[in-house]
Design a protein around this nucleic acid. Sequence first.
DNA 1: ATTTACCTTGTCCTTTAGTACAATAGTTTT
DNA 2: AAAACTATTGTACTAAAGGACAAGGTAAAT
Lengths: 207, 207
Amino acid sequence: MQDIFISPLTSGLTSWVEAFPKAKISAMVNAKPTKVQKNASYMFWLHMNEDRQQWLTSTIDLIQKKYENAKIVVLANAPNQAEAFYAMSMGVVAYSHAYSPAFVLTEIKTVISHGGVWLGPDLLKRIIEVSTSLAGNQAEQVNQHLKTLTKREKEVAVEAAKGLSNKEIARILNITERTVKAHLSSTFERLGAKDRLHLALMLNKKA
Amino acid sequence: MQDIFISPLTSGLTSWVEAFPKAKISAMVNAKPTKVQKNASYMFWLHMNEDRQQWLTSTIDLIQKKYENAKIVVLANAPNQAEAFYAMSMGVVAYSHAYSPAFVLTEIKTVISHGGVWLGPDLLKRIIEVSTSLAGNQAEQVNQHLKTLTKREKEVAVEAAKGLSNKEIARILNITERTVKAHLSSTFERLGAKDRLHLALMLNKKA
DNA sequence: ATTTACCTTGTCCTTTAGTACAATAGTTTT
DNA sequence: AAAACTATTGTACTAAAGGACAAGGTAAAT
């Protein structure tokens, strides 16, 4: 696998060289690669200075168009979360500090070449925090709530949380509006919700 | 670093043995370790069968209490996202399939021992999708909605979306309850919301 | 100067929501 | 078998919510 560092620097950082002595370093991606072997695989290490999101976007686009299956890693001078998210959403498979020591770089390469994705511990931790409080765990938390309810209460609760009125809920569950109220009342009590709006907020929670 | 596999199996899977021939395998964590060297570092590989969340929780707790700085990895027979999130939130530093090939296990160990955190590509991809679509997009969409409202309507709307009653909103905005209703009514019309619950769902949307 | 958009508040009325107090009947647990 | 939990529905009442109709005041745009 051929490593190519794209950086404004004329010579690579020492850690890069240490990790990958045979890597190429160039200022920009060769749009018309002279010899793109069929089975050759490329790993691009994009050196990211601040305020180059424009450049990042177009460069990644270019690489993805010209080089099939190329792995793209972003090395940021000043890593930041938003940029990392952005890069990953474009298909970048690793995001790390430009001054990461050599062993981290080789580690990254190991992970990447096995089809993995690499993020520094801090970032990953942050992502996990974010996601656990959001989507992933959301289902969990909702379940946590719902599991304290009886079967029927659950059914009523989820409909109510969608914004349906008691009458509508009654119709689709084929019970009386009064019964809906009964289930909702006990639901409120069990979950400590003040009313259906709070219930909805609990079950649609994003925090 | 001493590797300890905690599993109901009497002998480890072949990939485990291949990756770590010198690892110990035991059915449970030794609560009172006979010889916990000061500087010894331990890596626990918890083999997770389905429906053992209880066990997982208590085991992780136990390890964290008895072994300082121990790294904990979960190997799941049937990996699933919710469980992964849960485990990571408890401080587990890697989560993977129990039948991961040996090279993945060593890869995990490499990453972990350098202070990293390891997740399989699928899971990580999912996490990234989730976080980007949430953290980023959500605010956008809400703004989209809010910007069609007047200043005052906005203020009322956000309070209503939190679950406050008209009376409460009136108090904090220092206006009459009637005025709150007026703002809400026009808000409903502008945003096409049926009532305050729908408004809340719109403004708290997680998509 | 006139129109337009906001903010404010009033009264009146209808519809929902939610609770209190009860009751019947099936299921599960102890 | 008795106790506890669940599902169902009734009547009645209180309190919000939301709309209809109306109107006075301010500020900006035409």
